[in-house]
Nucleic acid binder design. Structure first.
Length: 730
DNA sequence: CTTACATGCAGGTTT
DNA sequence: AACCTGCATGTAAGG
């Protein structure tokens, strides 16, 4: 170890961190709590818990599945607006939007506003390629991002390139065009999320709202829309009771909330979108007037419950396998049909077309290999942050909004089965054809809101995030936003510092908030991409990673390790905060006796601590699979007028994991702890023995670095092509 | 032409 | 002699 060096680096990092709000804050505060993180993390948890239903059992037991409200709106007839698919990222948004169309949504205004913000963010991100910019950007963005996250329809998390951002907007517009209205919110009737907001009493806002004059949705007969749906809903679940006239919608809702606050989040509510016409029509059918509305509301709420439960189940069932980490819920993983994936095998999806909506999209192409390869996908419990890898990439992405890995990620998400959309939704709201219509885009953000604005959020967190999101009233919302902003900014500053310390030698990983957050799409984040969904078929490769650790970790490492272990014991999953930094397809020279791995320059410069000296810094890399910590050195060689970045002392790691040429490594940073995590992924090709990388060999060096998958799939699943990640040359 | 990066290889160090 | 370390070079790809 080079302690001294580390310090120096730390300092350095500190400096950088200043620029990087991203990661930071939670780490600090949370770290203090150490094992209490659980609680800390959810700091607002107390209240959040109300919303967050982690315990699926509750649902199952308490609520028999209710028939879905399949499309309350006409949407059913008009399945997703096709608009969606223009671009990968956009597609996500659009898809969600479109889906939204199909579903009843309790849409909050906030969402719309957020969308706006997203759009802005998208631009913002889009323009920031440089690290410096990035940092500065990050500084500011967190708040915004968070805000954006709130929006239910498009994922804010993903900073989108302009185009994409615009797309997102379009989506929203589309929704609007379709005449969607916020069942409740539009009228300021109430904002579910507000109710849940931690800062305020659970029902505070609600009550406030209650007192406010409310506009009720106008009832107009809608010929097309959802009569059927509603009817069906009604049939299936009769309106339970008829409230007296005196019982207004607010009360109905309030009662419902009281009884379901623990199991249903604001987010869930927000996802419900109904076409105005549909609502009107349905209300009529249910008796018309206020009573009709009330009945309709009940039905919707019921649907929400059911929907929520179903989703939970799906999630649970799919995620059960991977227990270790929260990320298990990652849609990608869930998606992965192949059980083996849980273990470490990454099937590379040949292509996912499961989601019809996306099939048309150009992006539907099979996920990029690297995505597929993404350890996250592969690794149990490991969920990659979707967006990150590429995001920041800004560098990577910038030039190629679509070509970036992130795009792929998005795509992959899009193609994923609905059940897994939760995660996906984080990035984009994919329209969930089946279950949710409009999901909050980034629940994650929202959920963590203040604390983890950028962190990747586990699927389950959606709700939490959502909570922060909208407030019942615009004013409340504003206040909340202001609060969040303050909070975030405050944290940011602290975070930087904290992180520095936390990272053992490693500097603060530059976390790019903007990027990471999930924004897979080229935008920012890269996507964490990598998670591949699995699917694929192409199959290419299944990866297996087993990290066996022999050596005793260093002390600090031990600390982390211990902490992680403790956390795990407690059910806490540190990985939930993992952010994808970079991945590298291993070349012969990387796995040879040299014990060093050349890292992709751009990613290294973007995501790893800035190196002042060629000697670089000592950096502890915890093996995600084994939690073992490898003390490596991150350095660079002057090369021509540039630099070559290397990760040294990788020999044992490579050997331990049995990594060979063509396999790849993925480096993540733990947002909370600030430590670096590494995953070695072995790629096995189903069909061809070749590791591929070689094949591609020299011909495609670039792509390899960034797109392991590509390399891996020698066979070449279609996905690989896309990825050509543009290694944006500086 | 420039950039990134895989790898060759010289020179130093260790066994 | 084997191993390390670090630089230099060659090549593919991007602009």
């Amino acid at each position: 170890m080079k302690g001294p060096e580390l310090h120096g680096e730390d300092r350095h990092q500190g400096v950088e961190n200043e620029g990087n709000p991203a990661i930071g804050f939670d780490a600090m505060e949370e770290e203090q709590g150490v094992l209490d993180e659980d609680k800390e993390i959810w700091l607002e948890r107390g209240q959040e818990d109300l919303l967050r239903v982690s315990d699926v059992s509750i649902f199952y037991e308490d609520f028999p599945p209710l028939p879905d409200f399949p499309c309350m709106s006409s949407s059913s007839s008009t399945p997703a607006p096709v608009k969606a698919i223009t671009s990968s990222s956009s597609s996500s948004c659009s898809s969600s939007a479109s889906s939204a169309a199909s579903w009843a949504v309790l849409k909050s205004e906030g969402a719309e506003e957020d969308v706006e913000k997203n759009r802005q963010h998208g631009n913002h991100y889009y323009h920031h390629n440089n690290i410096d910019d990035y940092n500065s950007q990050a500084m500011e963005d967190p708040v915004e991002v968070t805000t954006a996250a709130l929006s239910s329809t498009c994922s804010m998390e993903v900073p989108q390139p302009l185009d994409q951002a615009m797309e997102g907007v379009e989506c929203m517009d589309v929704m609007e065009d379709f005449g969607y209205i916020d069942l409740l919110e539009s009228n300021d009737f109430f904002d579910p999320s507000s109710i849940f907001h931690p800062d305020e009493g659970l029902f505070e806002e609600f009550q406030m709202e209650q007192n406010k004059p409310q506009d009720q949705p106008q009832l107009q007969y809608d010929q097309q829309a959802g009569n059927e749906e509603i009817t069906a809903g009604k049939n299936d679940q009769e309106a339970d009771h008829q409230g007296g006239r005196s019982e207004d919608l607010a009360m109905v809702f309030l009662d419902w909330l009281k009884s379901n606050k623990e199991t249903v989040s604001a987010d869930d509510l927000r996802r419900v979108k109904l076409k105005k016409t549909t609502i009107e029509c349905a209300a009529r059918r249910l008796g018309g007037g206020k009573e009709g509305m009330k009945q309709l509301l009940k039905l919707i709420l019921q649907w929400v419950q059911t929907n929520h439960l179903q989703r939970r189940r799906l999630r649970e069932s799919s995620s059960n396998v991977n227990l270790p980490y929260p990320y298990n819920q990652d849609p990608l993983q869930n998606q992965n049909p192949n059980p083996s994936s849980n273990i470490n095998c990454i099937p590379i999806p040949a292509n996912n077309h499961s989601n019809p909506c996306f099939t048309q999209s150009p992006w539907n192409v099979a996920p990029p290999p690297y995505l597929a390869a993404d350890p996250a996908t592969v690794m149990p419990g490991f969920s990659p942050m979707v967006g990150d890898p590429f995001s920041n990439g800004a560098s990577n992405i910038n030039g190629h909004p679509y070509g970036t890995p992130q795009d792929y990620i998005l795509q992959s998400y899009q193609t994923w089965p609905p059940s897994q959309f939760d995660m996906a939704s984080h990035f984009n709201s994919f329209a969930d054809n089946n279950l949710h219509s409009a999901q909050p885009q980034n629940p994650a953000f929202t959920g963590y809101g203040n604390q983890y604005p950028y962190q990747y959020v586990p699927a389950n967190d959606d709700n939490r995030l959502a909570r922060l999101g909208s407030s019942a009233t615009k004013e409340a919302r504003k206040n909340r936003m202001a609060r969040q902003r303050r909070f975030l900014s405050h944290h940011r500053n602290q975070n930087h510092h904290n992180i520095q310390h936390q990272n053992q030698g490693a500097g603060d990983p530059h976390e790019r908030l903007a990027n990471d957050p999930i924004a897979p799409p080229g935008q920012s984040n890269p996507g964490s991409w990598v998670y591949l969904p699995t699917a694929a078929g192409g199959g290419s490769a299944s990866t297996t990673v087993d990290a066996l650790v022999d050596r005793p970790p260093m002390q600090t490492q031990n600390n982390y390790h211990r902490q992680a272990a403790a956390e795990r014991r407690q059910g806490w999953k540190p990985e939930k905060n993992l952010r994808f930094l970079l991945q590298k397809v291993l070349k012969q020279s990387d796995v040879g006796s040299l014990g060093r791995i050349v890292l992709p320059k751009k990613e290294a410069e973007t995501h790893l601590p800035e190196l002042e000296a060629r000697d670089g810094i000592s950096i502890a890399m915890e093996d995600i699979g084994t939690s073992r910590v490898w003390n490596m050195r991150y350095r660079f060689w002057p090369n021509n007028k540039s630099r070559m970045y290397l990760l040294e002392n990788t020999g044992d790691f490579v050997r331990t994991n049995g990594l060979q040429e063509g396999d790849f490594i993925v480096i993540y940073s733990d947002v909370k702890c600030g430590k670096y995590m590494i995953r070695g992924v072995k790629v096995r090709q189903p069909a061809g023995p070749k590791p591929e990388s070689k094949k591609a060999g020299k011909s495609r060096r670039n792509s390899h670095a960034n797109c392991p998958a590509a390399a891996n799939n020698g066979s070449g699943s279609s996905s690989t092509t896309m990825i050509t990640q543009t290694r944006t040359v500086n």
